[in-house]
Amino acid sequence: MIKRVVLSCMLLAVPAVAAAQQNMPTGFKAFDESAPRETLPAAPLVFIAYSLAWIALAFYAFTLWRKLGKVEQDLAELRRLVKR
């Protein structure tokens, strides 16, 4: 039983180790001064992050408000029909 568990763990670990080894540096490379460096601006990322957060919250609040209105309307309609 223990052998099977150990063997299963080893088999599961193989792809993870292989993937990790793919990213391992194989040697040192000299720094190239002339190579273009990434200069990603931070402001658009901050703007997008806050915008998406507010959009998600506003959308959820809006759908909730609509659901609440619909179910209240259905309930009132049903009560009115039952009274008749």
Binding site: A49, A53, A56
Partner: peptide
């Protein structure tokens, strides 16, 4: 969703 979207942007 907010956590998982804002995290990668950061």
């Amino acid at each position: 969703l907010i956590t998982l979207v804002t995290g990668p942007l950061w």
